[in-house]
Every structure is written in C-alpha cells, then in structure tokens.
C-alpha cells in the first residue's frame, strides 16, 4: 500500500517534469521515423520478402526493441543530474520506500517508451504493416518489461559510478554487443551457425524473436512466452538490485 502510494508520488512528479519538456517526444520519434523511411526500404530485397508489409513485420518489432533497450540504458544520466542536485539525498532522508524511488522513475521510462512505440506503430500502419490488437498489446508488454529492466540497470549503475564520464562508455560497451548479437535490425536467420549459437545466450535475442512472432500473428509460437518469461525474470532481478542501490547508505 505504502509502496503503491510512494511509487505513484514519484511517478507523478517524474511525469510532470517530463511533460514540461515535450521536446523529448520530437527527439524520441524523429530518429525511428528516419529508420522507417530511409532504412526499411532497403529491407525488402535484403530480406527476400515479397511485400513491404512483410518487411515491416520483421523490421518494426526489431526497431521497437532497440528503442526499449537504448531508451532504458541511457536513463541513468538523468539520475546522475538528480544526484548532483541533491534531490536523491533529499528523498533518502524521508521515510519514502526505496523501491518506490526506483519504480516511480522506471515506470515513467516505460510509459514514455510505450508512447513512442504507439506513435511508431501508427506510422508503420501507413506503410501497410498489419497487426492484431491483442498481439500488439502483448508486444507492448514485452517492450515494457525490456525498458523496465534496462532503465533499472541504468539507474543502478548510475548510483554505483555516480558520474556521466563513467556511465556513457559503460552503457555503450554493454549495448553494442547486445545489439549486434540480438538480430534486432536484421534477423539472424541467415547468420552462420556460430553466431546463432552466441545469440541464443543473448536474452534480447529471445525478446526480439518473441516480438517478431507477435507481429507476424503467430501468438502460439514458443518464442512468445519464452521471450516474455525471460524478460519478466530479468526485469524483476534488475529492479530488486537497483532498489537495493537506492537503499544502500553510501555517498
């Protein structure tokens, strides 16, 4: 009960501050739209599919997962600014739940990611993408879990390293192989066996496969529940760890 109340307090404040600066919507949508317009047309021949719709079915879920991962991983920068301003310390001397300090922020990130995803999905409809609403909702759940996890990780790391200079290279180093090995931009169907073998160890690769299955309309594919389960477990672990960092009594 207290957790819910505290989380909504933190969440509301963070949303309020976010909406005060609507520039992020523009920035957050501009780049993906560029991908949709300029990158996707190359895909039809590359993926050897017949229609644009098929190409988007493969590309859009990958793009959304990519946004969820990167959007989350870079949230830590905002937290470092808050640390520097003393806002975090001020919260930590109050009896507020430490889990709420994390969840309130991460949920804001989830909401802004989903808003971004909806805009991109709507745009993709213009390009003949078709997807069932229930499947789409499940895909959004996947995205929400991914961004919950990555933003929690980013906050936890930010609390440990406490400086942008350390956070930026760290996040880039993590994100790059994760990106390359997940088949996010191009499916790994045509990848050599060893590459696929490595990708199987990449949880995001499961998330992408699940999301693609949903966009394909293949709700029954094992990829779907496996992806959701893996992301849910990782999200819980990440949230628990990051909340502990909020609670830890260090400078």
């Amino acid at each position: 009960m207290k957790l819910l109340r505290d989380t909504s307090l933190i969440f509301n404040r963070q949303m309020q501050l976010l909406l005060r600066n609507p520039i992020w919507i523009f920035v957050g949508v501009f780049q993906p739209v560029m991908y949709l317009l300029l990158f996707a047309p190359l895909l039809k021949p590359a993926l050897q599919v017949r229609t644009n719709a098929e190409a988007y079915e493969i590309f859009v879920p990958g793009l959304l997962v990519l946004l969820a991962i990167f959007g989350g991983l870079f949230q830590g920068f905002g937290l470092i600014a808050e640390l520097r301003a003393g806002v975090i310390e001020r919260s930590r001397v109050t009896p507020v739940s430490r889990v709420a300090l994390l969840l309130g922020r991460s949920l804001r990130d989830v909401v802004s990611l989903i808003a971004q995803a909806i805009i991109i999905t709507l745009l993709a409809l213009v390009f003949d993408l078709r997807v069932f609403v229930p499947n789409l909702l499940l895909a959004y759940l996947m995205l929400a879990l991914i961004s919950l996890m990555t933003s929690a990780v980013s906050y936890g790391v930010a609390l440990v390293v406490k400086s942008e200079d350390a956070l930026a290279p760290l996040m880039n180093t993590v994100a790059q192989p994760v990106l390359l090995l997940s088949g996010i931009l191009l499916p790994l169907t045509y990848a050599p066996g060893w590459l696929q073998g490595i990708a199987d160890w990449n949880p995001f690769s499961w998330a992408v496969n699940g999301t693609r299955a949903l966009f394909r309309g293949d709700l029954g594919a094992p990829d779907v529940w496996q992806g959701l389960l893996i992301m849910a477990v990782l999200a819980v672990v990440a949230v628990a760890w990051a909340a502990r960092e909020f609670a830890r009594s260090v400078r």
């Binding site: 505290d6 307090l9 404040r13 309020q16 501050l17 005060r20 600066n21 808050e82 301003a85 003393g86 806002v87 310390e89 001020r90 919260s91 001397v93 109050t94 009896p95 507020v96």
Partner: peptide
C-alpha cells in the same frame, strides 16, 4: 528529523511549491 544538505536539494525545473508539496507527501 529533517535534514538540509550542504549543497542544496532543489531541482531546477520544479517550483518551490511543487517541491514542498512532494516533500510533505513523502513524509
């Protein structure tokens, strides 16, 4: 207790009233 840090604790883009209301609610 209440605690006021040496370096301050307000957020640039919030107003004093918002900060105070939030702080009271956190308590």
């Amino acid at each position: 207790i209440g605690y006021v840090a040496q370096g301050g604790s307000t957020w640039d883009d919030s107003t004093a009233r918002e900060e105070l209301v939030l702080q009271a609610r956190l308590y």
